[in-house]
Design a protein around this nucleic acid. Sequence first.
DNA 1: TTCGCATCCGAAAACGTTTTCGATTTTTAA
DNA 2: TTAAAAATCGAAAACGTTTTCGGATGCGAA
Lengths: 339, 339
Amino acid sequence: MKEVTLKQIAENLGISITTVSKALKDYPDVSKKTKALVKKEAKKLHYTPNVFAVNLRTKESKTVGLIIPEVVHHFFSSVINGIIEQAEKKGYLVIILQSNESYKLEKKQIDLLISKRVDGIMISLANTTVDISHLQDVKNMNIPLVMFDKISKLVDCTKVIIDDRQAAYLATKHLIDSGCKKIAHFRGALLPQNSIDRFLGYKKALEDHGFEYDPSLIYICERVNYEEGRESAAQLLEDHDDVDGIFCITDLVAVGAIAVFNERGIKVPDDISIMGFSNWFVSSAITPSLSTIDQPGYEMGKTTFKMLYKEMKAKKNEEAITSETRVLDTAVIKRNSTR
Amino acid sequence: MKEVTLKQIAENLGISITTVSKALKDYPDVSKKTKALVKKEAKKLHYTPNVFAVNLRTKESKTVGLIIPEVVHHFFSSVINGIIEQAEKKGYLVIILQSNESYKLEKKQIDLLISKRVDGIMISLANTTVDISHLQDVKNMNIPLVMFDKISKLVDCTKVIIDDRQAAYLATKHLIDSGCKKIAHFRGALLPQNSIDRFLGYKKALEDHGFEYDPSLIYICERVNYEEGRESAAQLLEDHDDVDGIFCITDLVAVGAIAVFNERGIKVPDDISIMGFSNWFVSSAITPSLSTIDQPGYEMGKTTFKMLYKEMKAKKNEEAITSETRVLDTAVIKRNSTR
DNA sequence: TTCGCATCCGAAAACGTTTTCGATTTTTAA
DNA sequence: TTAAAAATCGAAAACGTTTTCGGATGCGAA
């Protein structure tokens, strides 16, 4: 029942630990004969190297950290999916932490990951994060860092994002093209970059097409959920009777809005068109199915890890790591909630 | 820029490494004065222990593994949420792996976690898993193991589950109580235990209430998704014109079915009642909102980790670890898809 | 024979921590 | 004052691996 170590094998074979170690790693200065011998014995004893010792010696953990605002979220869980798949392929394991949209937690978790000596960190920022010194710390300690989706422009590191502004522009344009004359926007909280960008895209689209921007058509959904979609829709119905299009920051908000319109006999899209954002898989299942922007979560996860991997490799080879921003493609998905 | 170690502190203070180590861990054989001195110096230099060395020495990683069939799934991501929250609270980190419902991958991942020397493993089995020797291995190596949700009765370890059979019984009974006369069941694949149990619960409820079990009313949804819900509903409409109730293995399947009925002008619940399973948060957002069984994912994650923690502590104290099965409560949630 | 050159092997240090056990000093009791 | 007890400290081993560097061996060529 004892742990089997290099020493064990060495003793069994009457050779040194050194030779065993080198044989297993195919060093050129071990004869083919002893290599075969050692490997056979290792297999026989089911030898697996003690990672703790390997970590200590090599100063690597082959483990990366991932901090995400909310795990229970279709987009983010798609990202997780992409990341862990890609990581496993490259022999890395992923430690997942959830910031719960809290800056304080996020900071603590960064420290935790650093103290666990992960080889790299991937993060999507909490909405409440403004101070970015904890991320600067990561960079200063020369730990590879990649931000995705919810990023901060203030941190110099590689980023994987979509062009929220452009996507929102296209979403709004799609409403305009389909004949909407008065378009509201259910936006997210004021701080997060993507909430800002989507708002700006919306505004720009209006201006470019001869609409005047009307602040009273903006509704804020702090928590970006179904309930807020409902509330905003209800409020909108009180405030305005001539809005014929809504661009929602997220599908979930849009679904809430559609539910309210359905209940009140307001026809979507005949009376009012609804545009979502994310292409949550449920969006095609509701009635009417939701027109939206496809936001490639799985893809984002995949390239996020790939970027991180590149940096980790560069660091190992003592090459300089250069920050890079990768922008993923989005697409307008036309369904039945818009004309 | 050098790493700060115990040695560093010791040299600065002109004392031994031993004393520094003990001072930081409040050993009783270090004077208050030197303790204060050491702690001050440690703080000044931002000392953090090298986990690699600690791991090697203590043979613990303070890390646990989690294998899940699919990350992108509301129920499972709720479980993940519960687990990582609880784990962090106890100072453990969680490595998440995804088996993609593949036995082969699952087995490989178990080996991976073992080789990473995690302190414990939590797993929800892949649908295709029948051979359980890899889990037996885990037990044999004396690594704490907890199975949740999709378990195998053949493995002797602690388990956290719901009473699928009982819950399905109540779901079916609810349909019966609300006046349904002919009740179909959209079940899952044949192998997984919870698919079997829900089917058995359905059958038992029928028998207990004077219904005769009719195999032609059973539809199999292999992949348990929206599309299969649609297909099964469409098929049902061809096969039978007098079914007035359906118990679906999962909300997603139920949502697919409802969509078909909505499209074809079949009224839910007036013409046909639909019962789901899981209480996916979308279920309350669709029209009509879905009656279902509440399956507490977050709670399950929480107690799964707690159970694991208990075992890990027991192992450390060299107490015997006794397997235990914890059954969590479910509840019938009545909404508008049933009368 | 001797030198040079491969080829093959192993001693030993290093990674940074924890913990045992003995040594030294200080305090207390007689 | 002295012996015993308590308080405080440190040397050293151990965890299991990786890697450097020097040593041994064998072989062919000079």
